[in-house]
Every structure is written in structure tokens, then in C-alpha cells.
Nucleic acid binder design. Structure first.
Lengths: 121, 121
DNA sequence: TCCTTATTTCGCCATATAACGAAATATGAA
DNA sequence: TTCATATTTCGTTATATGGCGAAATAAGGA
């Protein structure tokens, strides 16, 4: 369902628990049980959240004995400037370019005719 | 369900159709029927998406006759730098500060004891 | 006023998602 | 090898979300 590359990052961060986890993992490398304590959720739930963050490329993990440690990924961190930054980035996707071209066509059409077309297929 | 202020922006942008709409609205002011054509969705569906973007403060609307025009809000656009920017911004929220304090306590505890506590309530 | 029509709201359905507990997995320690 | 335990996977459930069509709303034009 994620057509646009990178949008999974927004979805990953669009959950309170995951955002909180992602934030603390920027400051400290933590094992799952510590995050369980912080978020007050079942271990299985936390594990899944961390997997989603990992799939989005936001965090990475390493195993030491029975513990698995997570930390922010070494590559990927909201007001006005932030939104602009996000939008600009997404603006470089293929979907955005396609939309721009489609839009050019739409703009050359009379909105009146557009609505008419939408009424009568 | 949105405890953390600003996270609704991420959720709003975390949908392909809404992201595409938000992007084109940064370039052009458009009426609903034009966005309907671009996204190829039912007018009612588009209307709902636009309301979500509006609630998140990403777009604004004005009514001219029977048409409603939407455009990017005059205040609030992914690579590494973007994610860092997002994270830094969210890091200034109260929830993040609370988490930091909680974390300080957690870090002073033996993870072993933490896990033990989680086993036996 | 009455009709047409662009948009929104509402009700409904299908799917996605978050949460839990139980079972499976993996690994250190006895 | 056998036990204990940290984490993950799986199955289930409740809720959230995205989509549509029909009805409601609002505003220009006959």
C-alpha cells in the first residue's frame, strides 16, 4: 500500500508510541525491556513497533546474548521549516513528478468541463 | 488518540493520496474537482482527505461561489536531514521531556531487575 | 422562487492497525 | 543436556481508517 518511497517513515513516526521510542533511541541504545518499561506496553507489542521502525530504516538492532539492543540508525530526525523540508524531499519522487505533469494538463482544462466529465462518464 | 502535538501532521501526510494532494497544493491553488481528477477518487473521499490536511494545519481553503479552493497553508514539505529535523522538533514536546526523565530513572536501574519486575507484577 | 450543481456530511462496508496472550525461538547458565 | 528467560512470531480481537454512494448543504442562475 506504500506506493511513494519514504512515506513509510511518516507512517512509522505517526504513532505516539513509536515516535516516543524513536526519540529515546536517538539518545541511548536500549534493550527491548527498557522500552517496554518506558511505553508500558506488552513486550510483543513493543517488539512489533520496533520492527516497524526498523523496516522504515529509522532504527537498527544488535544482539548481545539474550538481549537485543536498539538504537537510532546511523543515517536517518516539526514547525514550518520541518514540513517544508519533508515536502521538498517528497517533491522529488516519481509520483510527484507524474502528478505535476498530470496537473499541467488539468490546469489547461476548464474546471467547468472537468466537473461535467465527472458527472457523466 | 493523538497525544503528542504535531503528530497529526505526520499522520496526515502518511497517506499516499493526501501526500500527493498536499504536494500539488504547494504549487497551485486548486478546487476540489481538480483534485478529484488528479487522485481519481470519489468527491466525498477527496473532501474528507482535504479536511484531514486542513485539520493538521497543512492546507487552507476559501469559498468562491460554488467552488471551494484549497492551497497550502501559509505556515507550514525525506532523506537523513529531514528525519533529523522532524525528530529534533518533536524532541521539544512535553511528552519527550517526560520520556527523558523517565528514561533517566530507567537507566539507573539494572535491566535485569526491570525484566524481573515485568515478569512478576 | 425553483433548478442545477460543487462540496460536505452521513451511513455503510472492507481492510488495516494496535494491542494482548500464548506459543515458538534463541541463548546463557546450571 | 536441561532449565530459565529475553525476544519474536502467531492468532485473535477491537478499533481506526479509507473508500463509496446517497442525502444534506450552499450558492449561482433561470
Amino acid at each position: 500500500m506504500s506506493d511513494i518511497p519514504g512515506i513509510d517513515v511518516l507512517r512509522a513516526l505517526g504513532d505516539d508510541h513509536r515516535l516516543r521510542a524513536a526519540l529515546v533511541l536517538r539518545r541511548h541504545e536500549l534493550c527491548v525491556c527498557q522500552i517496554v518499561e518506558l511505553l508500558q506496553l506488552a513486550p510483543s507489542t513493543v517488539s512489533k513497533h520496533l520492527a516497524i521502525l526498523k523496516d522504515a530504516g529509522l532504527v537498527e538492532s544488535r544482539k548481545r546474548g539474550r538481549w537485543v539492543y536498539y538504537r537510532a540508525a546511523r543515517k536517518a530526525a516539526l514547525p514550518t521549516r520541518v514540513v517544508n523540508t519533508i515536502m521538498t524531499a517528497f517533491d522529488e519522487t516519481e509520483q510527484s513528478r507524474m502528478d505535476s505533469r498530470t496537473l499541467d494538463q488539468l490546469l489547461s482544462m476548464d474546471p467547468e468541463k472537468l466537473c461535467e466529465k465527472q458527472r457523466c462518464p
